[in-house]
Design a protein around this nucleic acid. Structure first.
Lengths: 122, 122
DNA sequence: CTGTTCCATAACTATATGGTTATAGAAAAT
DNA sequence: ATTTTCTATAACCATATAGTTATGGAACAG
């Protein structure tokens, strides 16, 4: 069941936040920000086994944070950061509780973004 | 061991993201955004037991997202959203991967915030 | 004093998570 | 044809997590 237009489901947020809750996975995402990487390349910086990395990749995939490709024997992973936007969106509701006057600037941002989006058909 | 000036440790991010990964806890935080609430008040909307709520509160406390007070028999919880800022900060590194030209505005924000913080002693 | 309300803690259960080693398949290299 | 490289999966283990019920303490209400 795909959500349509109402943002990610609570279950999606569960998966996204849970995926981000592990330091190895966060490091993997940081690595992927530099570009595609094979499983081996992702495993290299860590002392844990290759199967452990494959498991982490599966967690990241289920959260939608990573997509896989096929390149001969390799199954390179590439970053898909969009689900992070959903996480930030959820958190942003609370921004007023730590935001000083930062709030106002943020509202400006949202407004500008909204105006920009009016151009698209969505 | 308190971190000083270098942002939260990875362990802190673990705790923060993990705390946010549970829908009951997210709902509790949303409730607390409306103001302090006793354990009973927090438990009311859910079908789970009071001890389960107490456990969730402990998870939120360890993540620093909630602080407790003492009010006669009650142990009201109040929101402390600041750790969420650390989470967003971490995620923001990835913003360029989903942000359109939103980036530039965001950089402006960061700059302005930084300038503002120069005024404080920190 | 007695009872009630509010909450924490202990003890337990079931499931999830993060790791391991062993193994096997597919594609490339020789 | 054989070997090597890359990765996934299975089976297993230890610990963590999310829930339960039972219980008890502390503070108010009578």
């Amino acid at each position: 069941m795909e959500q349509i237009g109402y943002g990610k489901s609570s279950a999606d947020l569960d998966a996204i936040f849970a995926a981000l809750a592990d330091p190895t996975r966060r490091a993997m995402l940081t690595r992927l920000a530099e570009g595609e990487a094979s499983v081996g390349e992702l495993a290299a910086p860590f002392q844990i086994s290759q199967p452990a990395i494959s498991k982490h990749l599966k967690v990241l995939e289920k959260a939608g944070l990573v997509e896989r490709a096929i390149d001969e024997q390799r199954r390179p992973a590439r970053l898909n950061a969009e689900p992070m936007a959903e996480a930030v969106e959820w958190i942003n509701y609370f921004k007023r509780f730590w935001g000083d006057s930062f709030d106002q600037l943020d509202e400006l941002l949202v407004t500008l973004k909204a105006q920009k989006e009016e151009g698209k058909d969505e």
